[in-house]
């Protein structure tokens, strides 16, 4: 019986699993191995990769080794750049709950049979497909201190707007605002729309018969039924929040003013400073954080839904 179940499962799994093992899992495992090595990809061939134990991780936490002329190795505290970038990233991730709620509300608004809904859905989806250097340039214009449209609008109501992209205080909120603009109507909204379609209409009808208003239906029918999708969106948001956000600071602030995200930091370490082993270690610390968060969520979700 067990082997039969395994056979059937294999039938379903294999088409994806084989490719997954080769093209997705292998590079991930390789990066895990690299995180315990020093590797300068230009200077050394793959065969000369040198294992260094936990040194990359220690460096990341805040200490690196220094060998003086006498051959003595000592440990020196370094600038906690990784922690800084992690702080910046986590700060910008504070927008996630808001964005998710907004996406859900938007999906509920758009999930009705009204004239012109297709146009509205497309309009809200547009920012996520046009996002790129072009729209970033536009946002840089809008954030401009003197001529930007945001400060122009603020000036109408008598507020002197800040220099959004060139101050420690405002640069992060500015980037968050832009990301929300691009993200609310994007993939999350689509997933919520799809999730809303999955809810059997009978449930709403039954709730309505019981005298539930729209708000109560939303709370007691829609939200619980959307939990698996919400779980997915939340996990993906955490992952992309921690590991995404590379382009915007790279293009708009150069990573200054407290906008160096972990992904920008990681890219610079690996691809600009050629510290591939160290970059891999950073990636795996990120993995650990995301994995723990996912596990906590998993446990919480398991209590509420039957998996």
């Amino acid at each position: 019986m067990r082997s039969r179940a395994l056979g059937i499962a294999a039938l379903f799994l294999l088409p994806n699993l084989l490719g997954f093992l080769a093209f997705t899992l292998f590079p991930v495992v390789a990066s895990f191995a690299l995180s315990f090595c020093r590797w300068d990809p230009v200077a050394e061939p793959v065969s000369a990769i040198e294992p260094v134990g936990l040194r990359n991780y220690v460096d990341l936490v805040g200490f690196h080794s220094r060998t003086d002329s006498g051959g003595q190795t000592s440990w020196v505290a370094n600038t906690p750049r990784f922690w800084e970038s992690l702080y910046n990233t986590v700060f910008m991730m504070l927008a996630i709950p808001f964005n998710m709620a907004a996406s859900l509300l938007l999906a509920v608004l758009l999930n009705r049979k009204m004239r012109g809904m297709a146009i509205f859905r497309s309009a809200f989806f547009l920012p996520s497909i046009t996002a790129g250097v072009g729209t970033m340039l536009l946002w840089m214009w809008m954030f401009n201190k003197d001529m930007g449209s945001i400060n122009q609008v603020l000036a109408w109501v008598g507020i002197q707007g800040p220099d959004w992209l060139q101050s420690y205080f405002w640069a992060k909120p500015a980037l968050m605002l832009m990301a929300s603009w691009a993200g609310i109507g994007g993939v999350n909204m689509i997933l919520y729309l799809a999730g809303l379609q999955q809810i059997p209409r009978e449930l709403h009808e039954a709730a309505a018969l019981d005298g539930a208003g729209r708000w109560q239906q939303l709370r007691h029918v829609t939200v619980p039924m959307l939990l698996p999708v919400t779980f997915f969106i939340f996990i993906i948001s955490i992952i992309s929040g921690l590991e995404g956000g590379f382009d915007a600071p790279y293009v708009m602030t150069g990573g200054s003013f407290g906008t160096t995200t972990v992904s920008l930091y990681l890219y610079r370490q690996g691809f600009e400073f050629f510290r591939m082993g160290y970059a891999s270690a950073v990636a795996w610390v990120l993995f650990l954080i995301v994995f723990l968060l996912t596990m906590i969520n998993w446990r919480l979700a398991e209590k509420r839904v039957e998996y």
Binding site: M136, L137, K145, D163, Q166, Y250, V251, M252, G254
Partner: peptide, 11 residues
Amino acid sequence: PSRLEIPGAGI
């Protein structure tokens, strides 16, 4: 002007 050019794209 105080606005420095930023790599990638300028205002």
